[in-house]
Amino acid sequence: MNWVDSINYFIGKGKVQKVAIYDCGGKPLAATPELQFADQEVLGIIKCVNIPFNIYSRSQFGLFIGHTKYLCFKADDKTMIGLTEDDLFVAHICDSVMILAFITISVNADISCLGEVWTFAQELRSKMEVSMFVS
């Protein structure tokens, strides 16, 4: 499986502007050029996504990525959403990788970043399952 091709395919749909795929240890597998984060930030995101859904005592929490503070909440056991006034991200763990996708918030947005990431994760999962049988 070629991670760069997967990223290009996802971006090519035209709905998500920036996306990165990391292994669950925080190692970058592929990303759009403008999406670069420090290792500790990636590990922090992975840790937040992996905390069980029922552990949070608050429905929302803050998380800094770079110099930007995101208001975050869990969407499900393996998905977290973060937002600012200008953009939002979805971080989703799919098997052994984390998909991190960003979109710009616009008033007339007709897409769901969450839906796009979940669909992409299903496509990735299918490719991973097929690649296990093809050498």
Rank of each mutant, 00 (worst) to 15 (best):
W3A: 06
I7K: 08
I7P: 03
I7E: 00
N8V: 11
N8F: 10
F10R: 05
F10T: 00
F10V: 03
I11F: 10
I11Q: 06
G12S: 11
G12D: 07
K13G: 14
G14A: 14
G14I: 09
G14N: 12
K15Q: 09
K18E: 07
V19L: 10
A20R: 07
I21A: 10
Y22K: 04
D23P: 02
L29S: 03
A31D: 01
A31W: 04
T32H: 11
L35H: 06
F37H: 13
F37E: 04
E41S: 12
V42G: 05
V42Y: 04
L43A: 11
L43D: 02
I45N: 01
I46A: 07
C48E: 06
V49C: 04
I51V: 07
P52V: 03
P52N: 07
P52A: 08
F53N: 05
F53A: 05
F53E: 00
N54Y: 14
N54S: 14
Y56K: 13
Y56G: 11
S57C: 09
S57P: 03
R58V: 13
S59V: 10
S59C: 10
F61A: 05
F61Q: 04
G62Q: 11
L63V: 08
F64H: 09
F64R: 14
G66N: 07
Y70T: 05
C72D: 01
F73G: 09
K78T: 02
T84A: 14
L88R: 12
F89S: 01
F89P: 01
V90A: 07
H92G: 01
I93Y: 01
I93W: 02
D95K: 12
D95S: 08
V97P: 01
M98L: 14
L100P: 00
L100W: 01
F102W: 09
I103R: 12
T104C: 14
I105F: 13
V107C: 15
V107T: 13
N108Y: 13
A109F: 09
A109R: 13
I111W: 11
C113Y: 02
L114Q: 04
L114K: 06
G115F: 01
V117I: 05
V117D: 00
W118H: 13
L124V: 06
R125M: 08
S126R: 15
S126E: 06
K127G: 02
K127M: 09
M128A: 11
E129V: 10
V130T: 09
V130C: 10
F133L: 15
S135I: 02
